[in-house]
């Protein structure tokens, strides 16, 4: 049961075929095998939200999901959010503009959570309490969340 297994998935639109040990979690797979280090590890037991990625469009804690579970899935990480030419996604630009970050460690997870929220809302305005509730799964120890909420309100509110 510990033998490495082949998996095939897409990461940020690119097809990846790899061999992974069954106990390697998705975050380690992304960070070590694919060098996608924007997915950060904060607590490694699914509470802090720093490692949030999208799996088949839905947020997932990459520290709680095994890489083998992502076999056949479409995974999106923070590295896919800005355009290839470096232009920031509106959520990223708003977070920067509203100073919704300090140390930056939680920021990629916040971006992925807001990205899911934006797709779900499909253009309809979201109230502040819904945004705050959605962000409650992303711990930030620096900002007090105000700039983050302001940025989200600008884009999603």
């Amino acid at each position: 049961m510990f033998d490495p297994r082949p998996i095939k998935l897409t990461v940020n639109g690119k097809t990846i075929e790899a061999t992974v040990e069954p106990r390697v979690h998705l975050a380690d797979f992304l960070r070590k095998q694919l060098a996608l280090t924007g997915t950060h590890l904060g607590c490694e037991h699914g509470v802090c939200g720093a490692c949030t990625v999208l799996v088949n469009g839905a947020t997932a804690r990459a520290c709680l999901m095994l890489a083998v579970q992502a076999d056949g899935c479409a995974v999106e990480t923070i590295e896919s959010v800005a355009s290839a030419d470096g232009t920031l996604h509106p959520i990223q630009a708003a977070l920067s503009r509203h100073h919704g970050l300090q140390c930056g460690y939680c920021t990629p997870g916040v971006v992925m959570t807001l990205l899911e929220l934006q797709r779900e809302s499909a253009g309809s305005a979201l109230p502040e309490d819904k945004i705050r509730t959605a962000l409650s799964g992303n711990l930030c120890r620096c900002t007090g969340y105000q700039g983050m909420v302001d940025a989200a309100l600008e884009i999603l509110g």
Binding site: H40, I78, L88, Q92, L95, S96, H99, L101
Partner: peptide
């Protein structure tokens, strides 16, 4: 913040 553009992109 000087690293803001880096932080939002991870």
């Amino acid at each position: 913040h000087d690293s803001a553009a880096l932080h939002v992109r991870g």
